[in-house]
Design a protein around this nucleic acid. Sequence first.
DNA 1: CAGGATCCTTTACGATACTG
DNA 2: CAGTATCGTAAAGGATCCTG
Lengths: 119, 119
Amino acid sequence: MKKEAHINATPVCKVRMQAISDTMSLLSGKWKFHILGTLIEGNTLGFMDLLREINGIGTKMLSKELRDLEMNNLITRTVHNTKPVTVSYSITEYGKTLAPVIDEMANWGINYRKAIYTL
Amino acid sequence: MKKEAHINATPVCKVRMQAISDTMSLLSGKWKFHILGTLIEGNTLGFMDLLREINGIGTKMLSKELRDLEMNNLITRTVHNTKPVTVSYSITEYGKTLAPVIDEMANWGINYRKAIYTL
DNA sequence: CAGGATCCTTTACGATACTG
DNA sequence: CAGTATCGTAAAGGATCCTG
């Protein structure tokens, strides 16, 4: 309720905090990392491909998350004029810059499992 | 008669997916990255310190997130027997292993801002 | 095939007030 | 100081059915 009393020129740590918030807001939700990770590997996949690859996701969430990612230029959506229309999704060059982030997340998680088992 | 041609024992990509889920579940929510980031810098801080450092968080969320982080051995909680009790929080050695993940998140977010402005 | 529309449950989060 | 208790809102997510 109380708002900022004084406006400190943003210190370095605040910049980092803001940056983390930015990243998290683009990658928020349960599925975005999975979708991006899958597209980074598979390069180009159809809606159904993704539905199969990503364990547990439903059509509603998938289409919503894909829309979000596309709006942020992390992936591209291409409609093909086949009999029943098909659509393919790919990661953009910009989206590929997220690879290090995703890798760190994955690596830490892998080591986390090891740490758990050796307790 | 041929049985299932491919019941691949969890492929590499599934392992990564699981790892990402693990990491995300430990760091889920709006505040954990901020708390960890702050503790990595500040090393040891009291409840009020954190409340001040982390812009916008309330006591309820802070105490809940701290509890979560402590349960996962990412931070430690120490009670001091001062007049009104004081408590200090620090990051654990294990928690420090998250630094690369946090750094990647922060760096990407910083570049994201740059990318936005140069559009 | 690729989704949208709908309904519903669950969790997350925030504000305020109170306590040892 | 360091929280807990309570209440209320909003967002996230899931299940199912429907359509061009």
